[in-house]
Design a protein around this nucleic acid. Structure first.
Lengths: 159, 159
DNA sequence: GCTTGACCTAAAGTATACTTGAGGTCCTAG
DNA sequence: CTAGGACCTCAAGTATACTTTAGGTCAAGC
């Protein structure tokens, strides 16, 4: 049996990562992967790119934006190959972020609980109605994450 | 002191809900609110619309799409005015959905835990790498929710 | 009755994250 | 050496959720 090839074509990578071929090309335009090229201009992905792409897939599935994922991956050591410890650090990063977001959702859920059967949903008292104290901050990412992930930012100018 | 007015202009509604004026108009194009009009064509919102809009704001902040929120609000009784029980039913609906989503995120977090310090992130064994068994389903909503909210759908054709 | 701020519509722009299409090139097997 | 599938680029399209712009109208106060 032959040794696994050193690098892979884009179709092979798509099959292995579950990402579509156009998506892989799109990720390259975003600077998330930088495959080599053959003399004819075709992409050749290293095996380490599979790891990178799997991280991207999982993290985006978790709700992280490509910009966020890219920023984390950019902190991988540029000179040497990434080690197990490097990948684990990245996994832990997303794990911590996920914790924050789950906590944020739980906080909002509690507020929602306070509005069930409490006779509220009246403009004056309801925690959901009067939430200017806990409003969205500006910045990248989905409104959901800006809202529940943050640590109680100040109110932004426009919404 | 005067009684509160029966209906409100769009600027007043914007100020009270924290939504921008263009957003309120946009929501109307989406059928989420149906304000009355003056003879001159200006919008007049009923006080019940404030409740409706606050629900919309909270639910979208929680990560629900406008389509989802609209579908829930459309189930309010059409003939009579909505009661406290109606609003509570809606709050409970979102509460249940939120529960599902938190559980989904926790599931993925556990998988992530399994990949920290376990020597994996190797292509063959890692639960994050080989997740075809638990892949995204088609349908509306963000990829996050399709991914973590669902109850283990089958793999869709393309991603 | 006139000013002026609040309001109106319609269309275009923004951002994220892709997909789809058109038209052409690469490269490997027969 | 040639067929054909895999690959290439670039541009445009899709979907969500809005914001911004342009050009005009309404209505309340003086």
């Amino acid at each position: 049996m032959a040794l696994p090839p050193r690098d892979l074509g884009i179709g092979e990578v798509a099959a292995r990562t579950g990402l579509s071929v156009p998506t892989l090309r799109f990720y390259e335009t975003r600077g998330l992967v930088k495959p080599l090229r053959t003399s004819g201009g075709q992409r050749r992905y290293l095996r380490a790119d599979l790891r990178r792409l799997s991280i991207i897939r999982v993290a985006t599935d978790l709700g992280f934006s490509l910009a966020e994922v890219g920023a984390v991956l950019d902190r991988l050591p540029p000179g040497r190959a990434a080690t197990q410890a490097d990948w684990n650090r990245i996994a832990r990063h997303f794990r911590r972020e996920l914790d924050r977001r789950i906590r944020g959702m739980e906080r909002l859920r509690e507020r929602l609980d306070g509005c069930i059967g409490c006779g509220c949903l009246s403009m004056k008292r309801c925690a959901l109605f009067n939430r200017d104290d806990e409003a969205a901050a500006e910045g990248p990412g989905s409104r959901l994450w800006r809202e529940i992930g943050g640590d109680d930012h100040a109110e932004g100018p426009a919404r």
